[in-house]
Every structure is written in C-alpha cells, then in structure tokens.
Write a protein that binds this DNA or RNA. Structure first.
Lengths: 255, 255
DNA sequence: GCAGTCGGTTCACTATTTGAACCATCGGTT
DNA sequence: AACCGATGGTTCAAATAGTGAACCGACTGC
C-alpha cells in the first residue's frame, strides 16, 4: 500500500460520530506508530485538509475539503439537484423528506427538507445515522441487495428503538422482500414511535444502490390514501436523483 | 517534500475554471513525469477522491470529498450559518446577497441567496470568480490588507468589465482606502453595468481576512437611503459570519 | 504513412518512510 | 511529593517505498 493510501486512511478516521481525534487515538485506530501518524496529520494539516484544535490538540476535518467539495458541487451540482427534488417531494406530499447515503453500516443523512404545511412535523437530526434494519430508508436500501449480502448487513444484535422495531432477521428480511416487490419500503414506528416512513432506493453509477429517499410522517396523518400518494412520489423522486447520480434505469439486484 | 504533499498538489489542480484534467495535462501542470502522476491519480481515484470520466479519460473531483465535507458541515455547520445570515440580509435589504472566499487571486462565491421581493434582480453565477479590483467584495477584501500587499494583488493588466471599471492601480487604491475607513466598499457598475455592489470583509481564525459578504442591487434602485440601510446590514452580516469563522473582534490590518 | 498527441507500463536507481526508543508534560492516586 | 499512565511530539539507522526515462499501443490530423 502506498503512502497516499495511508494518508487517506487518516481522513477516513473522521466520521459524524467521531469528528475529531487525537494523535495517540489515531495511531491506535490505524494500528501504526505515532511518529508516522503524526507526519500524516501534519502533512494533511499544513494543506488545510485537517485542522488542530489549539486547546485540546485534537485534529478535525479542515476547510480544504469544503473548498474542493464546493468546486465539485459548482461543476456538477448533485446536492442542489437533490435539494430541488426533495423540495418538490415535500410540496407533493406535505411531509418532511430526506436523502441519505450508505456509509459504514448505516445511512447518513445528506439532505433534509422540512415541510411547512403542518405545525406538527417530523424532525430529523442530520447527525444521527439511520439504522438499516429499523428505518424505511434502511429497508429500501437493503431490498436492492442480494438476500445473502443483505442479511450480512444486519447486525447480530440489532438495536431496539421502539416496541415495533423488528427484533429478528426473519422479520426484517420479510420487509425487504415486500419492499423489493413494491419498489419502496414502509416503516410504521419501527425507528421512532409515532412516525411512519416511506422510502425508495437510490442508485449511483453502474446502477449500484447507494442510498435512499424517504418521507417521514406523524403516524396520526398516515392513512392508506397518504401511503398511496407518498409512495408514488417517493419512487419518482428516487428515480430522478438516481438518474442524476449516473444510474441507467432499470435498477438491478445487487449480487 | 513528502509524498502526501505531492498527492494533495494533485487535488489542488482542480479549480472551478478547470474542473477536470487528463494525465498528460496534470503531469505538465505539476512539472513531473506521467508515471508518478498516474500513480497519484490512481491512488486518489481508488479512494473516491477523484473520478475518471469513462469516455474522455479525464479526472475530476470525487464523491469522497463531498462526504468528508459533509461530516465537517454536520459537525460545525458554517455553511448553514452563513446561509441563514445571508437570508436575513436579503430580508433586511430586499436584494440578492452573497458570500465569497479568497482563492488564488479571485473571490470564489461560496453561497448566494436571491431576493424574491423584486422581479428585476441581480443574477450571480456561482461559477464565475469575482475580480479583486472591480467588485465591491474584492475592494472590501483588499481594504484589509497592508497597502503594499494589496497592490501586489492587483493584476498588472486588470481586466476591463465595463466603462466604469477602474483601470489604474491608483483609483483602485483610493477605493480601498475609502473602504478601509468606512468598513465597507461600494462598487457602482464597475463589474457589471447597471449593478451596484456593497460589501464588507469577512475574517477567519487569527483574524485574517478571508473573504467578503456582498449585496448586489440593480442601479435603478440604488440611491442614498438604500446605500445607508444596505451598508449597515452588510457590515453586521459580515461581523456575524466572521464570528462563526473564529475571528475575534476587532479586525486588524493584515501585514 | 508519418508526426504528434494521448493514456498507460516497465524497472533499475534512489530518496523517502518507518517505528522503537526517547523526552516533556499533564492529571489523577497513593 | 513522588508515582503512574496517559498524552503530544522528536530522533535516526534500517527498510521500504517512490521515481522517471524510455517504452508501448492507440488515436488524430495531415
């Protein structure tokens, strides 16, 4: 493995749940000595890819990343397009919509558009990962994977969020099969009590599933007609975003 | 220089005006041989920091940058805060507002919020760099630099955009002095005809000037009362954003 | 068919990375 | 106050990784 890969591994240490790391911690996580890791950290810092907190000496992701990401976004405005599609979805459904990408066993929220139609609405913390087994988006994502691959993504001891969270793999797999058939997934209070989710998978280049578009509704407003209109529009929105991500319809099952 | 620096130099090749480069071009720009540059490009590509176009084989910035930038943004939402401040500025002034950062001899637009109050409004292309010598934001930025440093940032042959673009360094320096005194800069049709700009400098960590907040108004609506209210609010907005960027008031002249 | 591109490959040569051992400092315990 | 186990950071001989001229095949314009 080249030096560059090792340096990029360092950047990979930073996640939403671990946004800053110290020298010793980084060395431990990478399984390497401090001297080398320090050289990496310094190299990345001197170019603005990392910043060091002057008080606790930990490192966090730097402004150079924001700069480069913005160059990408200006050139090829995926986020802007996604935002517009989500806004349209919110207008069509009257409920909060979001887009998330698969990342390390979870779905990470990429964009949220809140509805302004109702005074009671679902709040989605962008920092909180969506579980694969208990959210509509997660089930929608898994439904595009080969059954074996999907079950390998289910944690051994899946976290229980509500009384309705599916506790065994069989239940989750059944939901996935249903979602694969329908083209969208429904979750009734499995992640948050009194919240229902409807989500459809999003595909990227080479038609690999890479995330999901979801709409979250307070259970009180979630009846059969609502499901009908929401699911139709969610599937549409997911297809539009997939198209911009470079997917060519129709999507295929991921082996 | 370490290998990591060289790899990060590769990422530095990509700009808004040159969003994709080929192997030979990259080697030429870096003054290095193709073999090494190819290894860099491949290393960066394999980790998603670059992507290669499958038809013309050029490389462009990859999704890993967007992912990392989003982690940074979720942890420390500078863009969101900036967007909110700009929105408030738009509400207060009724005109389009923008934030830009200094980058390589220009100001690069980071965020724009358009007004919806008037049917005639200024359109700002986020891909187009703002010139230092001919835009209100540019003058505001330069006004925080030491006179010698500022003049070194003025191109030898400054581009002429309109009949009112300042052509000689002396005029530009005078505008800067005025801006330094007022705390904001005014540009009347110097960059785009029939557009007036008002801008105030933005400071980052260690109180270095790093960009500017600006409001762009069609000349027809730009009278003395407008200037009064706009300038007051622009200065306020710039101070708020500077604060979030880690600047500690009061700003000081950059040596 | 020639000249000038392009992206990509090879391999002997060489400069860079490596990491154990080191130091100084900081909080908490005894 | 001495000790302990952390922390961030430094040194330098040994080992490994990066380097780049020359090369290839493909393509384009003449």
């Amino acid at each position: 493995m080249g030096t560059i890969d090792k340096a990029l591994d360092v950047l990979g240490l930073f996640t939403r749940s671990r946004p800053s790391v110290g020298l010793s911690q980084a060395a431990r996580l990478l399984g390497r000595d401090k001297a080398s890791v320090l050289r990496y950290l310094n190299a990345l810092q001197s170019r603005g890819f990392l910043e060091q907190d002057s008080v606790d000496r930990t490192y966090h992701l730097g402004p150079a990343l924001a700069r480069l990401a913005l160059i990408r976004e200006v050139t090829y405005p995926l986020n802007q397009v996604a935002g517009e599609v989500l806004q349209k979805l919110v207008d069509e459904t009257g409920e909060t919509a979001h887009l998330s990408h698969y990342d390390n066993g979870h779905l990470a929220t990429v964009a949220v558009v809140e509805t302004r139609l109702h005074s009671t609405r679902v709040y989605l913390d962008p920092a909180q990962p969506l579980p694969l087994h208990a959210s509509a988006s997660g089930i929608a994502y898994l439904s595009c994977l080969d059954a074996k691959l999907a079950s390998s993504h289910l944690p051994d001891c899946p976290e229980i969020f509500t009384p309705d969270t599916p506790t065994d793999a069989a239940t989750a797999m059944a939901l996935m099969r249903q979602a694969a058939q329908d083209g969208f997934a429904v979750a009734r209070g499995t992640f948050e009590a009194d919240v229902c989710g409807v989500a459809a998978p999003v595909f990227g280049a080479s038609n690999q599933v890479c995330g999901a578009v979801g709409v979250a509704t307070p259970s009180a407003r979630f009846d059969e007609p609502a499901l009908q209109t929401i699911s139709r529009h969610v599937v549409q929105a997911a297809a539009q975003i997939s198209h911009h991500y470079g997917a060519t319809r129709p999507p295929i099952l991921q082996e």
